[in-house]
Design a protein around this nucleic acid. Structure first.
Lengths: 200, 200
DNA sequence: CCATTTATGGACCGACCGGTCCTTTTTTGA
DNA sequence: TCAAAAAAGGACCGGTCGGTCCATAAATGG
């Protein structure tokens, strides 16, 4: 599904699947899974119901595609930033700083994965497997950074790398919840000293 | 609404409003607002649709009552525990420890307020005002504890009490998200050393 | 015993839900 | 030019949504 057969035999798609998926993702992000209806999706994606179902299968499948896309985007960003960062420690500091300082203008608040996990739970048959997959992927990147810190000797004694990864993960989740709760960036930035203290 | 007129003139209620509200709260907690239907509410609350609407007004109103009840219960528990704790610092440590170690047997995961904020957002006309009210109440208790620490001289130098309250708040929200994401209590307990380091 | 008051069960409402299906349109390769 | 292929529009589906209404049941005070 969502195949882009540019040289297909029949009538070509009259919408851009990537852009449609992006719009669907933004809508789920803002409104949640249950709070988003197929007609709303049709409207923002700019296609009819039959096209939607032909291209994406079902609301569940579309939602999972959105979760996967979101997770892949953020994980990709994190991996790239980590690879280019001058040190794993600085990467973690920058990551938390960016999370705390973020403020969306007219975009959705919080994190689609956090929101979805809270709405549906990770045991939900609808999205549970995807949520766990993306949770583990995000966690793995933080573990990668923390282990690299340990190997570089940047990690203070007595800190288990994987435990530190869990701590950073918790902090970022908390910050994303606070964003959804309308805390200001200024209030959220109070949390930066927690990770600074954690890593030094 | 939900008045308990024990000496009313007419036919007495055939259900316990407190218990019905508790059951509704548990259902919203487990399934979210949009994921819970009126018929499910009728079933777990043990009353008919007309009784439900007569007693509670609407699904929105019932949900707000549940949020308020949940917030009042947790805030009351926190206030009492703080008042009786041998030190504000120990209260905060115990609070985070309990949050990290909690594991529900057959009860809902996570926090109703966190889940609802993530699902609906704090700007939602449905629940936004109540979510903000309860957010501020919970935060106020943590600020109270942090300020008491500062007055007792328990707070290390360079820590602003309200900033520390925000940090503890973020950590607890993160832990509640992780609970909803099926992290184990063992993984969540990794975060304890963060608050220990923060307060000493 | 009766009028009043209140709660209850259940029928009923229009709207919308997610999803299917069929017809029409637009493209391709032969 | 024409048959095959694929997408789009939109009617249509049963089910369920949140919510209302009314007749009935059960309690009260007089």
């Amino acid at each position: 599904m969502a195949k882009s057969a540019s040289t297909g035999r029949g009538r070509p798609l009259q919408f851009d699947p990537e852009q449609a998926l992006q719009q669907a993702m933004l809508l789920f992000w803002a409104q949640g899974y249950e709070g988003t209806s197929t007609s709303q999706l049709m409207a923002t994606m700019g296609l009819s119901k039959s096209s939607l179902y032909q291209a994406f299968g079902s609301k569940d499948a579309l939602f999972n595609l959105c979760l996967d896309r979101y997770g892949e985007m953020t994980a990709g960003y994190m991996s790239d930033t980590l690879a280019q960062a001058k040190s794993p420690k600085q990467f973690l500091l920058d990551l938390v700083e960016a999370t705390a300082s973020y403020h969306s203008e007219d975009g959705p608040n919080g994190c689609l994965l956090v929101n979805s996990a809270c709405e549906l739970g990770a045991e939900s048959p609808r999205a549970g497997p995807m949520l766990l997959k993306r949770r583990d992927k995000a966690l793995a990147i933080m573990q990668q950074a923390c282990r690299a810190m340990a190997e570089n000797g940047e990690l203070p004694k007595g800190r288990e790398p994987d435990a530190v990864a869990n701590q950073v993960f918790a902090l970022i989740c908390g910050l994303k919840v606070m964003e959804r709760m309308s805390f200001t960036p200024q209030q959220r930035r109070d949390c930066l000293q927690m990770v600074e203290r954690l890593l030094s």
